[in-house]
Each structure stands twice: as C-alpha cells, then as structure tokens.
Design a protein around this nucleic acid. Structure first.
Length: 471
RNA sequence: GGCGCAUUCGUCUAGGGGUUUAGGACACCUCCCUCUCAAGGAGGAGAUCACCGGUUCGAAUCCGGUAUGCGCUACCA
C-alpha cells in the first residue's frame, strides 16, 4: 500500500510537470526474492492506470530496469570508490558484527560499524583475503562535518557525519545495497526527482555523500509521509489488504483507490474530496503534501468507492460487475451470464453497494433457480403465518390476472391491494419480497418482480405458500 | 542510547498572528423521504489546536523546553 501510494505521488508529480515516470525494479536482495512478485506489482500499477514511461516491458534508453541485471555497473562504481580511497574492503564476519552491536546496545552506545577494516594495510588485507572471507565493500564516511539538504517536503535537514557509520555498498554475494544501487542508477538514468517514503529521510545524507564521492550531481529529494494502520504502526499485512491487487478482488474501483490514496498525505483545499485523475494531475503539488503519517481509513475508502460506483453508467457498472458475478454466483447458475439481464438489474442496486463484491449477495435471487431461505423471512413484523398465507394467495391471484408486469403496473395494483387487505404497505411488500427474493433486505420490490417476470414470481409465491403451509 | 522529524474532532484534513463561536469529509446520532436496505436532504454531537513557558495589544498560527509518537541506526529495501 505504501509503495503504491509512493508510486502514485511520483506518477502525479511526473504527469503534472510533464516529466517521465520511471519504473525500476530494485531486486537486490536475494533472500527476499519472491517469484511472481514483480508481475503482481506491474499488474497493480496497470490496474490503477499508473503507466510508466520507462521500465519493465516498455524499455527505455537507460535499461535494463532490473537492478539484478546491472551488477557490473555497481561493481565498477564500488571499485572506483575504493581506488579513490572513498571505500574499502571489510572482512569482518557477520558474527563479529552481531556481537559488536549487542555490546554497543548493552552499553547504550549508538550501534554502528566500528571501522576496524577502514585502515587496513596492504599486508593485513592480503592476510585477511587469504583467510577465505569474501569481503564486503564499505563506504568511508567522513569522520567530521555534516551534510544538509533541502527536502522538497521537509525543508532544510541536517545530519552530522558522526552519526553515520561506514555503511555497506557491496554485499559479499556481489549484490549492491540499496544505497549504492540507488545512487548509481539515479545518476545513470538521469533521475531529477526522487519521491520516496519518509523512512529514507535519514539515509539521504549517505546518498548525498556518495553522489559527492562519485562526482555526480544529486537529484532533488522529497520524502513522503507514511501510511499507518489503525494502531499507528506502519501499514502491513496484519492490517488486512496490503497488495493493491487485493483491493481489486474486493471490488474497489481503481479511480476510487487513486482518489483515496491521493488524499492520504495530500489535499487541495478544505472541501474537495472527489477528484478525477486529470484533476489530480492538474492540482498535485509537493507543497501541499503533509509531513505526518496518515492512518488508512477503511470506512472512508468504502464511502468513496460507493460514490464512484454511483457515478458509473449502466453499461460501465454492468461491465465491472460481471466478473464478480461470474466469480461469486453459485455454480448451479448457468454461465455465461446474460449481459442484458445483468444490465437490467444494475439500476436497482447501484446506490446500495460500496464495493462490486457486495453486488452478488444482493442479486443472487435473480439468478438462482432454487431459492433457499428460512420461512421466517416470509413473516414480517406485525404479521402471522396465517396472514402471510392469506396475503400471498390474494397476491398470486391478482398477479396472475394483472394486465402488464412492469414496475409501474405492479405498484399500481399492489398498493391498493394492501389497503384493501387492511395492511400497511410494508406488510404486504415485505411478505412478497420474502417470497420473491428469499431476502429480508433486497433491491426494490416492483423493479425486481418486473425483471423476474410473472411466471417466476408466481412460482416463487407457490413455493413460499408451501413453506408456510408446512410450518 | 544516538540522530532526524512530527503533534488540529475517533480517522483523513483546512487553516501558517486578528476575518475562527477552529471549516470540510468519513464514521456516529436525530429528523425528513421511503416497500426493506441504501442513496438523497436537513440538523446534531464531536478538537481546552499535546503540554508548559515566552514573544505580541492579540498565537492553533512565531520562539524555547517537556511529553508522546514515528522513522533511521542490517551483508532489507
């Protein structure tokens, strides 16, 4: 989620300024490599409509866009830094480092590499190398001084070099760390603006130090606020959906997701809530990005998604709902579904759902050949089974003789019937609703009956009567 | 522990010295509409603007301190 929001802000920023949105896959951690993860990410971006100008699949002048395919570049940079005296080989074992850290923590010292290998002589180096340890490459952080930079969102930020240790550039498996790869690539790829999550703020001085050592002009940085869960912790799997694709399968619309995500940390003014993509692009600016983390509010997302669903045309709603019906309707329902039939139903539920996934349970009775429900739904408030039977028999009678069978004629006949039977409208309609849909809460009755048709309605009333009679 | 940053209704936020009895949205409550549920409409409740000092005629807005929270402090990104 956080990554997707970061991607969105990058995309909005690029589109607003007429720049390029570049997608680079930072797959430099072998241990965390997950098969298919990249495809999922690309799918998510595509679904949201965040198209990239350079990157996987579309290519670009500065490819490849997978860091795992650019190892040579990082190696060259590391070698250059070593040659210049800005980096060095470190032969310390991870066991020693772990121990060192534990000791530092115990003594309440700031944890960090103790620079044991920083000034090894040629002789010592050769000795260590002979020991069979594959070294890592560390950056030789200046011991004194400080680095300041002007973050586009946080303003002027300063860090003392004394708080930065000699961080690793190249791991012993030959892969670069984020720090190295990121700096090398941003330079090589001509990146002008880096918009990333706040968690990177404190490592920015390291990056700046590297840009300087490498003789590269650094890009502009903007650190975005984080997205938190309801417990104020960084949003994670524990908080429900994390992958953007989860939202798709839960029936959220991409436009709503974008709108909602954009408002997490950014706002235009004190009242506008609904933004189209082009309005977002037109109005987006870093100056209006907040600095504080925002909690992901599912309720508001639901409301916003509902608002977007209500704005859909009948055709569009139908098109979007179809896959959910195909997926969620019980197997006994014949496929493929009739698009025309679905389209007829849509107006009845459009303003009643917050997600596309909520449609199926509401409209299942339009498709299911056999309704299965408890006879209790036929006996609404202030009714008895006997009364319900009477009501249904009377209704069946009238329904079978009714001239037309559209919503209007149904209503014109049913309303007076309630009066005639000495019932409140809700009593009659509720009973019929139960018989026809098997639901207590359902789409509007007349419209539903019209779509189901006379024959089916009458049959369902028969079945309802059977149910009541066998109570 | 160190460093950096933040702190306005439960949540997302507007507001950056007087126009603020701090505005909007979600959620919540009431009423209207109504065949259920929604949607829609009208109201309501909800924030001593973290706290303490200072600057000022005047501070949510500026300054300092405190508290709390978050991030970083990995051969993760």
């Amino acid at each position: 989620m956080g990554n997707i929001r970061t991607a969105l802000f990058n995309w909005l920023f690029a589109r607003h300024h007429g720049g390029s949105f570049i997608l680079r896959v930072e797959d430099t951690d072998l241990a965390r490599k997950v098969k298919g993860a990249v495809e999922v990410m690309l799918d998510g971006l595509r679904w949201l409509g965040l198209d990239w100008d350079e990157g996987p699949e579309v290519g670009g002048k500065f490819g490849p866009y997978f860091q795992s395919q650019r190892l040579k570049l990082y190696n060259e940079a590391a070698q250059r830094l070593i040659a210049q005296g800005d980096a060095y080989y470190c032969y310390c074992s991870s066991e020693r480092l772990k121990q060192m850290r534990a000791e530092q923590v115990r003594r309440k010292q700031p944890p960090g590499y103790d620079r044991r290998c920083r000034n090894l002589t040629e002789m010592e180096r050769a000795q260590k190398a002979a020991g069979g340890i594959t070294p890592v490459v560390r950056f030789k952080t200046p011991l004194g001084g400080q680095t300041s930079f002007n973050d586009l969102i946080w303003g002027e930020v300063t860090f003392d070099h004394s708080t930065i240790d000699d961080f690793i550039l190249l791991k012993s498996d030959g892969y670069p760390t984020y720090h190295l790869a990121n700096v090398v690539d941003d330079h090589l790829m001509g990146i002008t603006h880096v918009l990333r999550a706040e968690e990177w703020l404190s490592s920015t001085p390291r990056h700046l130090l590297m840009y300087r050592a490498l003789g590269f002009a650094p890009p502009q940085f903007a650190h975005l606020p984080m997205i938190l869960g309801p417990d104020h912790a960084k949003l994670s799997k524990r908080h429900g959906a994390v992958a953007i694709t989860d939202f798709r399968s839960r029936g959220y619309l991409p436009e709503a997701m974008i709108n909602f995500l954009a408002l997490l940390g950014w706002s235009l003014d004190d009242k506008t809530e609904i933004f189209s993509k082009s309005e977002l692009i037109a109005n987006f600016s870093l100056e209006r990005v907040k600095r504080t983390g925002a909690i992901f509010n599912w309720d508001k997302l639901g409301w916003m998604n509902g608002a977007y669903i209500r704005r859909l045309s009948g055709d569009e709603l139908t098109r979007q709902v179809l896959p959910f019906l195909e997926r969620d309707l019980p197997p006994e329902v014949k496929r493929p579904l009739s698009v025309e039939y679905v389209k007829q139903i849509m107006p009845l539920i459009q303003e009643r759902v917050r997600t596309l996934a909520e449609v199926t349970p509401l409209v299942g009775f339009f498709f299911t050949p056999e309704l299965s429900y408890d006879a209790k739904v036929l006996v609404v408030e202030k009714m008895t089974p006997e009364l319900a039977i009477h009501v249904l028999e009377e209704s069946r009678q009238r329904l079978s003789q009714l001239e037309g069978f559209d919503a209007n004629s149904l209503e014109a006949m049913l309303r007076p019937l309630a009066v005639e039977l000495g019932l409140k409208a809700g009593q009659l309609f509720g009973t019929l609703r139960g018989a026809v849909s098997g639901l207590k809460v359902a789409p509007p009755l007349f419209g539903s009956m019209a779509i189901l048709g006379r024959e089916l309605c009458l049959r369902r009333i028969e079945i309802a009567l059977d149910k009541l009679n066998s109570l």
